[in-house]
Amino acid sequence: MIRFFRKYKGFAGCTISTRLNYRGALLMNIVNASVSLVASLFLWNVLFQEQSVISGYTRDDMIVYLMIVFLMQSILGNGTEWEIAGSVLEGSIIMDLIKPISFQSRCLFQTIGSAAAEGAVAAFVTGTAAVCLCDLGKYLAPERFFLFAVSILMAFFVKFCISYLAGLCCFFTSNGYGVIYMRQVITDIFSGALLPLSFYPEWFEKIAKVLPFQSIMYTPTQIFLGRTEGAQAVNMLLLQLVWVIVLWVFGYFFFRFAIRRVTIQGG
């Protein structure tokens, strides 16, 4: 494990260095995301003037919900799949394939790097905003916070595995946009990033809960808001873990399958 970490850690480090080289872009990403965050905060503010509880969410719940989604989206970014798509389409993936490394682990560590760079900035923005906008105190039980931290970590891995699979699809499509935008839309809807899952019709919620996407946003938010507690929360974490393992193994075999059919462009 230590050996594994030592071998791949450089990918995270180099990615952080690269990101910090583009400080402007890093900041703009956060600013862009903040704009849409602020817009939805205003929207929900208006809605909560009419009624104090919507589908079981109070105003404060909703603000926290939006904050967590914002934080998660910044941490989880879309970098992975664009980079995989780019390296597949442009052919530079061969520079990774000639090295004694697993492509999947290499991508994971690269994603960890960009998450660290963007997450740090996003966490600062969210933290500050949340303190100003609502009474955070009632959400911050230490035991719950620990579960929340674990669920974010799991959410990160689930999101990575899904992005990795989407990125690999470019082996077959010779184009990244379609696959990646579709992946984003599906994730936004089924993970609860757009709206909490309880806002959807019951049948839809049921479908969403058997899909892996809910592990990305729904699970961490529910735990932080205290809507799932104790054994139920632990079960949700376990479900996340199952998804991580299933998707990782699937990604491993999908890569082997994809690479067999690869025709690397140029060079």
Binding site: Y8, G10, G13, C14, S17, G91, S92, M95, G267
Partner: peptide, 25 residues
Amino acid sequence: FGQRTQLWWDIPVEESFRLLKDIYE
């Protein structure tokens, strides 16, 4: 590959080398 590079574009060459040191152990 003369038309490709294994160096990371935006970081010092030295860091790319250190990455290779890790990768090849």
